[in-house]
Structure formats: structure tokens, C-alpha cells
Design a protein around this nucleic acid. Sequence first.
DNA 1: TCTGGGGTCCTAGGACCC
DNA 2: TCTGGGGTCCTAGGACCC
Length: 427
Amino acid sequence: MKNIFALVDCNNFFVSCERVFDPHIWHKPVMVLSNNDGCVVARSNEVKALGIKMGTPEFKCRDLIKKHSIKVFSSNYTLYADMSNRVMATLAKLAPEIEIYSIDEAFLSLTNTHIQDLDKYGAKIRSTIYKWTGIPVSVSIAPTKGLTKIASEFAKKDKSFHSVCNFCNFSNHEIDNLLSKVDVIDTWGVGPAYAKKLKRFGINTVRKLKYADLSWINKKLTVMGERCVLELRGISCFPLDVNPEGKKSICSSRSFGYPVTKKRELEEAVAAYTATACEKLRNQNSYANVIIVYIKTNRFKAQPQYSNAAYMKLPEPTSSTIDMTKYALYGLEQIFRQGFKYKKAGVLLEGIQPSDRIQLNLFLKYNHKLKMKENKLMKFIDRVNRHWGRGTLHLASEGVKKKWSMKRCKLSKRFTTDLDEVLEIAV
DNA sequence: TCTGGGGTCCTAGGACCC
DNA sequence: TCTGGGGTCCTAGGACCC
């Protein structure tokens, strides 16, 4: 049985989210910046046409922003996450099986669905999502996920496809023709390092990669590269992952709004990131027994540099912010050095295990009652914060003023998740 | 002045065990 | 005048994804 996959990809997702709530910026150049208003992470087609690349630091394109009156937004993840949920919920109604692949992409499996006209189906997905959420999407259809990624390039860039590109309609020869027009770096699984390596051997298009010698690819790009090439040949190696397991590592980190020198402020930041990470951990019903804390100075500046990490193995897995914060602050204590301007700190949780299968420490006196009490407290805090907004309840060690927190000068409102910020319409 | 954040997988090499 | 071999586990580092 031949597999059929579809990839539904939101166009310029963060920009589209902003546009839903502001008709003034339809058809105007719009960009969204990363945390701290640092780099460009989403661009409207108008901005792409100006040659501004993904990941460019904002200060490097300030002239263009001014010259072309580009509308600039700080990233508003609360809004984007909610819009994403709406898109995915819509999609779930339209397709039998869906894998949410990222905030703005989902794979569908259309194998065995006997859909007569795949093009028409793709167009229906597009129009329904647009009608229900206001977000424009592209749809690509192919026998493997890897090929849907290539088809998606055509759906987005080649107007003749009207945002739906179905490789299942094409002969092998026609597909090869299309693949020869795409740079090898646009292959799923080929990044800058592999692309450079491949181009040194004359493999510069997706078509050439498709017909490269498999064992040679295995040697140069490991088995993952080999699988990606097989996918280009129409042999599916990455099935639809409908029920992704919990995360195996959880990270919370931020750059600071200004250079931080005081230990006290680093402590607040580390405590806050630990709380965020633990909340994610509890959300997937897991415990962790490893915590890593790191701090670093700004590598782009000509100033004394320092970075370090503290790796701590806990005697017993936990998901309690209270427990974890103790270790985090102890770790910070070990690595903190006076006299540096710190730019970023982060907390990583590893050794993650489902809460119903945790390994207890044989030699520790396990105080079940205390543990249960603390679990209940954490659940309560999570509930309050979900209902009343993040950070409503938090440990004192996180600090109150949070002077160090990131810059977000051009933030739009949380139109869909906060009653105080819903869209106002003048009558 | 100003440079994001959160993940996954694979491999090599060392430690350790029998 | 000699120095095994095989297996597992762990970690660091490098590549990739969005």
C-alpha cells in the first residue's frame, strides 16, 4: 500500500497571527522579533522580498525598517500558542490522523482514506482553516514526509500551485524535474554543515542527493542522512507520530534585558526558570533527577568572557519547584564568579521519567506524606497560574521586580487569552 | 547601544564489568 | 619480552529540526 502524507504549514505564522487582529497591516511589510527583540524570526512576504533573512539581528536591518516602514512586533507567544491550538483543532476535525509537528506545522496521514481528489481536499483544508481562524496555510501532499517538505516549497513559492502542491499527481520524471530546481539545503535533514559537505562533492540540488550512493551518504551524513535520502526516493522512513511521548529534556532559558552583574539577580532568574521548567515537567506528568544550571556572558562583546554549568544528579526524582529550586540555587552558587556581565542563564531538566514509573532511592528515607503534600501544593499553584495568568503565584526566590527580564518593546495584545486585552472595535 | 529559545538524534570515546 | 575481548552505560559534542 502506498503511503500518502500531507503537510499543512501556516504561512509566515507569527506575522499571520498579528495580521488577524489588525487589518491595517494586511499587504504591508511586517516582521516579528525573537525574545528580547533580538533577531527577526518571522517575515511577511513583503519583508522576504526586501532580502531580510531569517535570524538577522534587528539592529542590522534598522535602515530597511525605516525606509520601508516595516511594522515590527515583539514575539507574543501567548497569542501564537493559542492561535496554533485553534489551527490544530480545526485540522483535527478535517483529517483522520494528525501529528502536530511544531507550532505552525502538522503532518496528516491520508493512507487508506480513499480520498478521491487530493487536490480538492487540500484546497478544502486551506479554506476551512482560513475561514475558522484567519490563518493562511499551504498544503503539500506526497508519499513521504521528506517529499512533502519539498512540495511545500513549491506550494509556498510557485503561484501556479495556489498553495496546494500534490506530488502524487506527478510522474517520477516530473518530480525529478522539480527536485532539480531546489537547493540541497532545503532537504529535510540537511542543514548548513551537511549542505557544505555535499556541495564539495558536487551534490547541490535535491535531485542529485536523491540519486547519491546510499553507503557513501551513510558514511558522510550518518543513518539519519541515509533515511532522508530514502524518503526523497519515495520510501517512507518516518511514520506519522500521533502520540508523541513526553519530552526527554526540558529547558528554560532567557537572555537578559540588560547585562546582569549581581548574584542576587541571577538567583532570581534561575529560580524563575526553574519554576517554568518544573511546570512543564508536571504538565507532562513526569519527574526528573538531573538539573543543569548555566550562566554565560555576551559572546558578541569584547569583554571578559565567562560561562559555566553545574550538573547535579538528584538523590531522587522530583517535580517540585521547591525541591528543584534548592538544587538550582546551590548549583548557581558553585559556578557564579563576581565581576562579569552576564547575558544569559538557563536551567535544563534531564533524567525525565513518567510519574507512575519513578525509581526511588533505596537508601533515602522516603517521606511519603510530605511528598504528597508538596505535590498537592504544586498542583494548586499550577491551577491558580493557569487560571489567573503565569506568575500569579510563585516562590519568593524568583523576586518581584524582575528587572533582568527581557525586552519586549513592541508587544501586541493577548487578544484571545485575556479578557482585558480583547480587540476593541470603534462603532 | 542592539545578536532567540526549545527540542531531537547519532556517534565516538571513556569507564567499567565479567 | 608479555599487555584479551566483548558488552553496556554514560557523556560530550555535533548535527539537525522548528
